[in-house]
Amino acid sequence: MAKTHVSTCINGQDAEFLCSPEQTLLEVLRDTLHLTGTKEGCATGDCGACSVLLDGTLVCACLMLAAEAEGHDVTTIEGIASGNDLHPLQQKFLDHAALQCGVCTPGFIVASKALLDEDPDPDEESIRYWLAGNLCRCTGYDKIVRAVQDAAAELRS
């Protein structure tokens, strides 16, 4: 079967890969590029565990063909920290105990980053609606919302 050659930029680095036409970006990230920080929770866009940024826009990697990434910038959880410095969102998730099992956490952090990039001072309701596509079954969301609020405050200061 003919594979498609795709040139992208992933986490600031040029990346090329071959994929089948029907392969999703999630499959290529995890299985071909070994970027396993992006998780599969449902593969139907209902849980947000595979959240990535495509040219800064928040998307589910399970709902995009890998071929569609041609010429675009992809940011995954592996690209959120700068060098050894955690992003304030990552630090605040830790400080607030905003994760329990941690499997939804990469998706939440990527989604929250997209929110704060767009709105540096979201209120609780905006945070909750923005993150409604990210399911967490452990925390009841309380500490996640607080971590995002706290990270937003730090980023604004």
Binding site: R30, L35, T36, G37, T38, K39, E40, T76, I77, E78, I80, A81, L86, Q90, Q91, F93, L94, D95, A97, L99, G102, V103, T105, P106, I109
Partner: peptide, 21 residues
């Protein structure tokens, strides 16, 4: 007290390896 969990950094950076990884 409320220290950061020992496995925390790996879980906020995508390093932590789960079942399918």
């Amino acid at each position: 007290t409320r220290p950061v969990r020992p496995d925390g950094v790996d879980k906020v950076t995508g390093r932590a390896a789960f079942g399918a990884d």
